[in-house]
Design a protein around this nucleic acid. Structure first.
Length: 290
DNA sequence: CCTCAAGACCGGCTGC
DNA sequence: TGCAGCCGGTCTTGA
């Protein structure tokens, strides 16, 4: 389950390998082609996989950027700029290889859906087991309006005030704080794992209504989120279920998580509580988190 | 116009 | 062994 730190790891690994390269050929899987023919948008959005594949030919990757949990491949061809927007969904992963056989894990290799070949014959492969990810080719951000609504990057200085301002909107007042910090229009890139951890650090019950949390607590919570995201980036992300970085390697942040996936509270040893908040499983300590 | 709920996109995994 | 049901990030659609 890649969240912001995992995506950051992918981007950092991709940059030195693919920036500056030019796309010679793109192949998409028959699986997503069949889905398209059945009227489904599987991975490739707003275009048929074949149209998408053709459109990428001749493009040079000028820059790779992470924005929230998205990867932006900035592209250029004949002086025109384009943007290849990628989201890893639940189980997406990028591999840079010479042949598909080099993807050693079966479950990824069997689900290679977008295979990009550069002019130097190297392959950049997008594999996605459950196909919740997305690949979208646009010219500019405004071509896909939801991207305009994303909160600023959590590490920029405006992000904290933006969070406070958003969290005070009436539509969030009665929502559980956990649901609000996981909303990309409030904070960018805070998914289930890191929301769970930050709330545990701050001893805040994830079910608490947003309106019942003071501004100063929210500011502290914001810093807890930023800190856990940064810590995770520093430790290579959390390798839970299907996340792999570009080299197929796993991060070690999962070993540092104190509440996510735990049966027992590391502070008071009592059994943790599982509830569904906003449709997602949430773990917390009923004793320590008020 | 806004808000909210439900639907869409999936296959590995768990548990009966 | 078989298979139904669960899980979940984000956008889209419908009410």
């Amino acid at each position: 389950m890649p969240e912001l730190p995992e995506v950051e790891g992918v981007v950092r690994a991709l940059r030195p390998v693919v920036e500056g390269k030019t796309i010679e050929k793109v192949i998409t899987s028959s699986t997503i082609q069949t889905s398209y023919e059945n009227g489904k948008e599987s991975i490739v959005k707003k275009s048929s996989p074949q149209t998408f594949a053709k459109a990428l030919v001749g493009m040079q990757i000028t820059e790779i950027e992470r924005r929230a949990k998205y990867i932006f491949f900035h592209l250029m061809r004949e002086g025109n700029r384009y943007l290849f927007v990628n989201h890893l969904g639940m189980t997406g992963a990028w591999f840079t290889v010479n042949t598909l056989a080099e993807i050693t894990e079966d479950k990824f290799r069997r689900h290679a859906h977008v295979i990009i070949q550069f002019t130097d014959k190297q392959l950049l492969v997008y594999a996605d087991i459950r196909r919740f990810g997305e690949c979208r080719l646009i010219e500019k951000i405004s071509d896909h309006p939801p991207l305009l609504k994303m909160a600023p990057e959590p590490f920029v200085k405006e992000a904290e005030d933006f969070f406070i301002e958003q969290s005070e909107k009436t539509k969030y007042a009665n929502k559980a704080i956990k649901e609000v910090i996981m909303d990309g229009q409030v904070i960018s890139g805070c998914g289930n794992i890191y929301a769970t951890e930050a709330l545990f650090t701050m001893k805040i019950n994830p079910l608490r209504k947003t309106s019942q949390i003071s501004e100063s607590s929210k500011r502290l919570l914001f810093h807890a989120i930023v800190n856990i995201l940064q810590e995770s980036i520093d430790f290579g992300g959390s390798s839970i279920s299907d996340y792999r970085n570009i080299n197929g390697e796993a991060g070690t942040m999962q070993n540092r998580l104190k509440m996510y996936g735990r049966k027992q509270c590391p502070i008071c040893q009592s059994e943790t509580t599982q509830v569904s908040i906003g449709g997602r499983t949430s773990t917390y300590c009923d004793n320590c988190q008020q």
